[in-house]
Design a protein around this nucleic acid. Structure first.
Lengths: 296, 296
DNA sequence: CGTCACGTTGAACGCGCTCAACTAACGTGG
DNA sequence: CCACGTTAGTTGAGCGCGTTCAACGTGACG
């Protein structure tokens, strides 16, 4: 198995949304190039704090200062492996000043960015979770994705220079804003970074393809099962339990994501439970029989 | 006619390259090549021919040599504006040897690449059209996109290093294979090219988001209307008629793309026709009332 | 406690699917 | 040349999955 820890989601949807390449597992992640960037000065902007601070649940309440991000250095960030290319992972973030490390707090329901906002930043979810929504002119909404910590959003803005989606926090979260122009400039001198960006965007394309497959040819039960498996996989990749997790989104949001109505989602969840494949109680989900859940 | 004379001037106004060693990335030095017309050897660079040759319909029949691509130089390629970043558009293709310009003929039904193939090239459709298919393990297919001339495919392969889709020609077509590693190398010295690549990938993400919206929240009639409008738009962008065009795909393929059954597609087409919005006769489509077609 | 958003469950409806019959276009071989 | 098979497309009839509408349950929070 290739070094999954480095490019964790290479295998991302293989079980859940499997039209996609199981054999692809054997593929090599982009090769790290020799590191040209010497470790230089100590970090300037970044304060060190315990990672535990990132694990804030929305119980946490509002901090005294709005948008006062709990500044944790990239070097201690749990999202590091997901966010940065290998070449930068062992580096002190000296070269990253003004690029990486600008974290910000967003409360539940608050927008990370909105459709129409100028495309200035990419965002990495450091802690928490979010959804991205496409809004049709007639008011219909389509959730195009859910993100959990370590995942990127905002790349759709590049095409037009304006974001085309709303990105909304599902719970109190911390996002790291990465100024795109700076990132771009940096990538001119760092090939690994450039590759990493290409890789991230390509992964996004693959994800959406998998989701299209789901929307185009799966029935309600399969969709819900695939959804749970997808979440499970992603939680596992990030070191959380793959079999027990909180659904941070409502049934309505799940439905909006899967192309179903909330009642249908609810029914399918109870059906899967009756079959002994999962256990559901409100937002608490537990996968009981993963193998059979994968068999739809 | 490998136009060697082109070389000197080529290097002369490579505005974007700004003194950078473009040829370093190409295995081919910018040396004059033997002026041989022999077809035996695959032309490395580009022959000039009329664009008309690209407009081959599948009536055209098979040429004497399989895969003998009608080599047309990038400088005369009608896809140029869509394929290349602005910096390269006015340039003679000297620096592009081994990167751009490797066109190849594919017959109707033939694969441009297949899921499982190593990710080595991106492809630009120079002429013709294609579809990309995701194959589920249980055999279900999902068409994730249709491409017409000037459009890119293959970027989904970057994530895993292996293509995850099949790309199949819908008619006899010409594709230009662009070795990704070479393109990547080239982009290290050409910021415009890098931007262009990012832009193309981002556009792909936006496209898929739009398609997700369609799949998630539109009814059959709306989907078919949106599909026609989308084609219309893309044809217009490429200088073809926006109101009259051939559907190069079958009803079944349209259905597979839209998440509908072929009978439903057929019914919706006739319904739209009865309403006076379009005219359909087999594969020939004409948009009569574009405004009302847009209003679903 | 009451409020409100979220979730579950039931019953009936309707859109798109399934199955089937038929037509049209096309190419192939006798 | 027609006979024929093949593939693509259209149209109808009935069915079933997921929706719609409605009622009720539940949990978080002031």
């Amino acid at each position: 198995m290739p070094d999954v820890a480095r490019y964790p989601s290479a295998t991302a949807h293989r079980s859940a949304f499997a039209g996609l390449p199981v054999h692809a597992l054997s593929s090599e992640p982009p090769l790290p190039l020799p590191r040209s960037r010497a470790e230089a000065v100590r970090p300037v902007i970044l304060l060190s704090r315990a990672d535990a601070a990132e694990r804030m649940e929305h119980a946490g309440g509002t901090s005294s200062a709005r948008n006062a991000a709990p500044q944790i250095g990239c070097e201690r960030c749990s999202s590091r492996d997901l966010c940065m290319p290998p070449s930068l992972r062992d580096t002190q973030p000296a070269g990253l000043v003004g690029v990486f490390g600008n974290s910000r707090k967003v409360e539940r329901g608050e927008a990370i960015y909105r459709a129409g906002d100028g495309f200035e930043n990419l965002y990495v979810l450091r802690a928490g979770s979010s959804k991205t929504i496409a809004l049709h002119r007639d008011g219909r909404e389509q959730i195009t994705g859910f993100q959990i910590s370590g995942e990127f959003i905002g790349m759709e803005g590049l095409t037009t220079g304006v974001h085309t989606l709303d990105a909304i926090a599902l719970e109190d979260s911390v996002v790291c804003a990465i100024p795109f122009r700076a990132l771009e400039s940096m990538s001119y001198t760092d090939r690994d970074l450039q590759r990493h960006m290409n890789w991230l965007m390509s992964r996004e394309i693959v994800r959406e393809s998998a989701h299209l497959m789901l929307m185009g040819s799966m029935n309600a039960e399969e969709r819900v099962a695939a959804f749970l498996l997808n979440l499970s996989q992603r939680y596992r990749e990030r070191g959380y339990s793959a079999t027990e997790f909180q659904l941070r989104m409502t049934r309505d949001e799940i439905g909006c994501y899967l192309g179903l109505k909330l009642e249908t989602v609810s029914r399918m969840l109870t059906r899967l439970q009756k079959r002994g494949l999962i256990q559901i109680s409100g937002k608490k989900a537990r996968i009981v029989d993963l193998d059979n859940l994968e068999r739809v």
